[in-house]
Computed example of a mutant assay.
Amino acid sequence: MGNMVTEIVAFLLTISGWILVSSTLPTDYWKVSSVDGTVITTATFWSNLWKTCVTDSTGVSNCKDFPSMLALDAYIQVCRGLMIASVCLGFFGAILALVGMKCTRIGGSDAIKARLTVLSGFHFILCGLCCMTACSIYARRITTDFFDPLFVAQKFELGAALFIGWSGSVLCIIGGLVFFLSLSDGFSLRAEYSYRGAASFATTRHYPSKPASTLQKDTQEQRQFGRNAYV
């Protein structure tokens, strides 16, 4: 029962993290900058992995998609690939978790379910690592340009999407580790049960003992045989 509850908790953590990671990919505010006037903010610049936009004080946004994938900066291409890989890994991890959990009636025997649970935890850990790496690379570029005194172009700050991605990554990694923890508990219980079963079988296995009358008769026959051996 405790093992099943642990799997349910791990599943909730990983699914929540995967939803946050998936929502990070189309989120607008990966990096943000603003131009302030004397009274109000005159313009807000923001960008993500797919486009760059500017929003004026009236709320009207003008966006421009990145024209060519090959002309993009290398860090944006790497972040795109890592985020797409993270979403795909989380999707397959969720399917494996649904099949491998003990509270579901699909997946086959306990051994097969245990293997599927291992694969699910591994997928979610990779999902979290990919998303965390992508967000960290993007944030590294923003902070490097922001603190560079020789960088004269528009400087940006960290957007909300990065913090959402980091949160989802942590949830996915923790949930994957909890999946491994639940599996190790199941293996220890299974090993203890097999050891006890082997010990009980060894103690109960014995040869049937002969009654006392039969033993006396066999002793007398042996003595009679030894006395008449050379007659």
Rank of each mutant, 00 (worst) to 15 (best):
Ala160Val: 14
Ala202Trp: 04
Ala153Cys: 05
His206Asp: 10
Pro149Thr: 07
Gln154Pro: 04
Phe147Arg: 08
Leu177Val: 15
Thr144Asn: 07
Thr143Met: 04
Val170Trp: 01
Ser182Glu: 03
Glu221Asp: 06
Gln154Ile: 14
Phe163Arg: 12
Leu177Ser: 09
His206Glu: 10
Thr143Gln: 08
Tyr138Ala: 06
Asp148Asn: 15
Tyr207Asn: 10
Lys217Gly: 04
Phe163Asp: 09
Ile164Val: 15
Gln222Ile: 11
Ser136Phe: 08
Val170His: 01
Ala139Cys: 05
Leu189Ser: 12
Pro149Met: 04
Leu183Arg: 06
Glu157Met: 10
Ala153Asp: 14
Lys210Ser: 13
Ile173Pro: 00
Phe163Pro: 01
Thr133Met: 06
Leu189His: 12
Asp218Gly: 02
Val170Phe: 10
Ala199Thr: 05
Phe156Pro: 01
Gly186Asp: 07
Ile173Lys: 00
Glu157Gly: 14
Gln216Cys: 02
Ser167Arg: 03
Cys130Asn: 12
Ser167Ile: 06
Arg196Pro: 07
Thr219His: 04
Ala160Ile: 14
Gln154Thr: 15
Ala202Cys: 02
Glu192Tyr: 01
Met132Glu: 10
Ile142Cys: 01
Ser188Tyr: 07
Leu158Ser: 12
Phe156Arg: 04
Asp145Pro: 05
Ile137Glu: 11
Phe179Leu: 08
Lys155Pro: 14
Leu177Asp: 03
Lys217Phe: 08
Phe201Ala: 14
Ser169Val: 02
Lys155Met: 06
Thr133Arg: 00
Arg141Glu: 15
Leu183Pro: 00
Gly186Val: 03
Thr219Asp: 01
Ser188Leu: 08
Gly168Cys: 05
Met132Lys: 04
Gly168Phe: 09
Phe201Val: 07
Ser184Val: 07
Trp166Gly: 11
Gly128Gln: 03
Leu162Lys: 01
Asp148Thr: 10
Thr219Pro: 00
Leu215Asn: 06
Arg223Phe: 07
Gly128His: 03
Phe156Ile: 04
Leu150Arg: 12
Ser200Lys: 12
Ser167Val: 05
Leu177Gln: 04
Lys155Asp: 09
Tyr207Ile: 13
Leu162Phe: 03
